[in-house]
Amino acid sequence: MTGTFTRGLLAGAAGTTALNAASWLDMAVRGRSASDLPARTTDALADAAGWSIPGRGSERESRRTALGALTGIANGLALGVVSSAVRSAGVRLSFPVGTVVKGAASSAATNLPVAALGVSDPRSWSRQDWLSDALPHLAYGATVQAVVSGLPTPRERALPRQKARAGLVGRSLLLGVAAGGRSSLGVAGPTLTAQDTGVVKKLASLAAVAGEVYGDKQPGVPARTSPQVLPGRLVSGAGGGALLARRAGANAALPSTAGALGALAGSYGGLAWRRWAGSFMPDWQAAVVEDAAAVLLSLTACLPGRRRSTRVTRVYHPPRA
């Protein structure tokens, strides 16, 4: 049996091999040349870091090619470990869905830096360019999905997951909305309301919530829907849904998805509230109202009503004379 980290490395290595094989097969069939995007991305990263690749002529070109390939391998291994950790957290995806999700994550890990660094604009790519990019990444996703689902860890064997109920998905959505308002609540809500959580974790969660409540009212805070802030809120919402699912012993695929969607709605909804309320009350008052609403939503999601006891009470009847 393998652990989460080892399984992730195996999945990442197998997925990277499949991606490279698909790319080389495409080159062999169509006779196209190798892409120079990895090398150009390496140049851009070196420039951003203020570092120049040593050497001249063919020597420097060899280093550019090698560094680009090593960066790709590092991405593949890292995503494999992340995929394994997500499954260990309780997210069980079907093979088709897992293939698409992991393939899209692999493509994003490659193409987002390319776009951010100005190396290339994916919006200008042709249909053939997109196919050449998508098929190898789908091969990566299929391989990683097969490995992580085919090598369960000892904990996964001991604790099989049941299907998530509608109530759990709904509570995950509410928790996601709360995380859209105050991102720390996505993880802090389940942590603070869990009976088996240690004091240190609860104090850390309280400190995170208190720090965000204070920082939210300071000037110069980036907008919650900005590219540098929104992803963290989505991750928090998804993580909160996964924690609720883990508590219920359920598959976290739907709860984590609901949490991320709730965080998206809560982020834009909270921003709309602050802009609308700012026309007739000070911003700090609108922020306090949002604080209360986010905490209330988090408590509603994490403290569901107790089920009525179904235990039958036996009544003692004395024997007849």
Rank of each mutant, 00 (worst) to 15 (best):
S106D: 07
R311Y: 09
A258Y: 00
S298H: 08
V86H: 02
K102W: 14
L264M: 10
L159M: 10
L37H: 09
G259I: 03
A294N: 00
S298C: 13
A210K: 13
P282K: 14
V312S: 13
R92D: 03
L261G: 02
S62M: 09
L45A: 12
A34P: 04
T71R: 14
A238G: 05
V119R: 01
R182D: 01
H317R: 15
V177Y: 00
A194V: 10
D133E: 13
R7T: 09
G170Q: 10
G249C: 08
Q228S: 14
A74V: 06
G211R: 09
A139M: 03
G55L: 06
R60A: 11
K202I: 09
S267E: 04
A66K: 11
V235I: 14
V101F: 08
L296V: 15
V209S: 00
Q195T: 14
A69V: 06
G211I: 14
P136V: 02
S107C: 13
D283L: 13
A115P: 05
G181P: 02
L77T: 01
F5L: 13
A14G: 13
K163P: 03
D26A: 15
A13F: 13
T110R: 00
A142T: 00
M1L: 11
L297I: 04
L175C: 04
A210Y: 10
A28V: 10
V221T: 12
L10V: 15
A242P: 01
D133I: 12
V187F: 13
L175H: 00
L79V: 03
G72I: 03
Q285S: 13
Q218W: 09
R274G: 02
S149T: 07
A104T: 15
L77P: 00
L135G: 01
G80N: 06
T191G: 04
L9W: 07
G76V: 01
T153L: 06
G180E: 01
G189D: 02
T17A: 13
G198M: 08
A11K: 00
S124E: 11
V169A: 01
A287F: 10
G103K: 02
V81Q: 04
S62V: 08
S279H: 14
A108E: 04
L297D: 00
I53A: 06
G167I: 08
R182F: 05
A48N: 12
A178R: 03
A18L: 12
T17W: 01
T300Q: 09
G8T: 07
G220Y: 09
P227G: 10
G170E: 07
L230F: 10
P231E: 04
R247F: 05
L254K: 01
D216R: 02
T300K: 04
G55D: 07
G103T: 06
A188G: 01
L37D: 05
T191E: 06
M281L: 14
T225H: 11
G90N: 00
G180T: 01
V91N: 04
R320F: 06
